[in-house]
Design a protein around this nucleic acid. Structure first.
Lengths: 128, 128
DNA sequence: TATAGAAATAGTAATTATTACTATTTTGAG
DNA sequence: CTCAAAATAGTAATAATTACTATTTCTATA
């Protein structure tokens, strides 16, 4: 993989952003630094960075894919009330992987897990 | 929810098909019985059937959404070699849900889990 | 049983995320 | 430096899904 200024900026934005970003959000943030960058470049690089495990693609059961810099493998929790996507701690992922590998004998290389439910903040709140 | 012949046929096709079906596959199968059915009707009904928990939407990290009749909640395993999507046994889901609920305190209402890896058939096989 | 209004449909158009394409520019090894 | 491979910008294309609308189908109830 050859160096590129654009990819460097994309990684930088990903690192700075604690939350999860869609391709469009990454595009908008990188554009502030480099207004000529193209959306195609964002997509191409998000894909290669995901392949290289430098970032993580999160496939969600609503809307479009999101991307996450958090370098340790971890799963996600989507609150259906406030519509926030939370990271779960990495050791949860380890346990789940262990359960599945022990039960099935499959060799798990990758997880794409999104739990849905209601988060602490929204628990007990009325509909809004 | 009002009865409709179209929705009845869709559910019937889902029940008969043991595997997972994309909206287009459902469309093609229902069309054999009712050639005038519209793809929009398929999508609308797959959505309401999923909301009613009569079928399950599987959001996969490749290609488009798939739908599954299996009425008990369960997760999925995608083999990256043969590109098959397998059902995991329901008790695995129960255990995972338990792990997450105990650790986070979140109330889990729904899971969207796709593990990736290599299945038994493909284990040890060369690339192809 | 007749009927009115709500819900569903077919068919088409629109939307949106993502990928493909191409001429040009950038990168880095020799 | 030089040159080929890789990356880019900008645009066009693709594909899944949803929105829209005139028409049809259900079903509760009069």
């Amino acid at each position: 993989m050859k160096y590129s200024h654009q990819r460097e900026l994309i990684l930088q934005v990903m690192k700075q952003s604690l939350g999860h970003l869609t391709a469009r959000q990454v595009y908008q943030r990188v554009k502030e630094e480099l207004p000529t960058i193209s959306l195609g470049t964002i997509y191409r690089n998000l894909n290669v960075l995901d392949e290289q495990n430098l970032i993580r693609r999160i496939v969600v059961p609503y809307g479009c894919d999101e991307f996450d810099y958090n370098p340790t493998e971890h799963s996600h929790f989507f609150c259906t009330k406030c519509e926030s996507l939370y990271d779960l701690e990495a050791h949860i992922d380890q346990k789940m992987k262990q359960v599945v590998e022990e039960t099935t004998g499959y060799e798990i290389t990758n997880t794409n897990v999104v739990f849905k439910g209601v988060c602490h903040k929204c628990h007990g709140r009325k509909e809004g």
